[in-house]
Structures are given as structure tokens and as C-alpha cells.
Amino acid sequence: MKGRVLHFHLAGINNQNFLMQDEETGSWWQQVSGLAILGPLKGDSLTRVFHDEVTFARWRKENPGGRVLRPAADSAWKTFSANWEEETAHLPVRVNGPADGALAERAVIVGVVVAGHAKAYPVAALQRQSPIMDRLGGRTIVLVESDSGRAFRAFDATQNGATLEFFQAADSGSGSMRDATTGSVWDFSGVAVGGPLRGQRLTRLYVLKDYWFDWKIYHPETAVYLLGPR
């Protein structure tokens, strides 16, 4: 932050999203947005590092030279339930947020923001239909699911000035797509691995897997993608 390295602690919870406090100035930062909401640095924003939530198998395949966080040695953490995700899903939601019946409060969504326009894509929809093509913030985008409905990525569907239309190409591997325009096959990392566009790379869009109740607090104008009945 402005040439100074901040060190963070947990400082509290704001409507079920953590607050962090930096040692250096004592400011409070909102976890999900990286925005300082109170204290001397109020109004400042941390730079977001692009992250990706995928299975370890896929990550290691894509990053063989990478490194992995080692579990803590003291290991109270081992007693931490292996079912944490399921148990968290049953925790109550009591927040000061907009009431909105579009989705269940704890529905897991994939959030995308393009040119200031936010949209939530329910994971349940992506598990039923992938890829999903949509218009958002004046762009055509494509969202795709992989790793048995657990990993999600989004790309700008425009390549070389032309908007490509994507279809599933599961026979070419989990998360693979084929574009109708050129017939090229694209893998889950957005790289064309076969066909005329082989070697080209789609522009990745940042996605955030979040609970609906949390997403709509920080994106009050968000749209929601609803799968038509079929």
C-alpha cells in the first residue's frame, strides 16, 4: 500500500465477512473487497491478486513448478472437521443486507464483474449447463465448469475481433469447449489446443465464488443469471 508493507490480523466480522486490521496503521479492511472501511487508510483499496479455485490435481498439472502451503505443525487444525463446507452451509445467515428472494441466501454463486456490471451465476446452473454464454458490461462472455462441477472459469468470448460461440467438448477433457465459428477446441485454461486457432489464448475474467448473501451486499446492483426451464 503506497510503498509500505502492511501486516494483517483478523479484527472482526462485518455481516459474516471478516474484517482485517493492519499492524502499521490500525485501519480496518473488508476481506471480500480489500477496501479500508475505517481508520487512517479509509477509502484505500488493496490490489487484488487474481486467484483461481480449482482441484489440486488441475492446479499441479498447470503449475508443476509451484509451491503449496504446508499445514500448520501445531495441528489443532487436523481436528478441524473434514466436513467444514457442509457444516458451513448449515450456519445461519443473519446480515444487514438487501432482502432478495432471487436465490437462497447461502446459494453458492460465481460472481463476475465486467466494466462495472456485476452478475451472479449460480453454481447449480453451471453444473447443469456448461458453458454458459452471456452478455455482460457490453461484452460477450463465456463461463465454464470443470473438475466435476467444482471449478469455474470465465473468459471474454471475443477473439481476434470476432465473437466465438462455445459448446461443450467434454470428450476433449473436463472443462473443454469447442467454438462453432472455427471448430477449434479450447481447454479449461482458455488455450486453443486443436483446430485453426490452436495456440491462441482467451482473455480470462476474474471470478469470485461466493455466497449469494455476501455477493449482493458488495454488489447491490448485481444481476442474476437464471437458467430457463427445460
Binding site: L10, M20, F50, E53, W59, G66, W84
Partner: peptide
């Protein structure tokens, strides 16, 4: 099959297993 949060800054790729960050939070 465990989920990880992967980041890559320059050529440094780092994975944070979700179960571990769900415990530590930070």
C-alpha cells in the same frame, strides 16, 4: 480432488488448499 486457491505472481505459482485457509482464514 481437494480444492486449492491458486495464485500466480510473475512466475511464482502458489496454492493455498481451501481446507487450510478455511481454518486459518488469513
Amino acid at each position: 480432488s481437494d480444492l486449492v486457491l491458486g495464485i500466480k505472481v510473475k512466475e511464482d505459482a502458489v496454492a493455498f488448499p481451501v481446507r487450510q485457509v478455511a481454518y486459518h482464514h488469513l
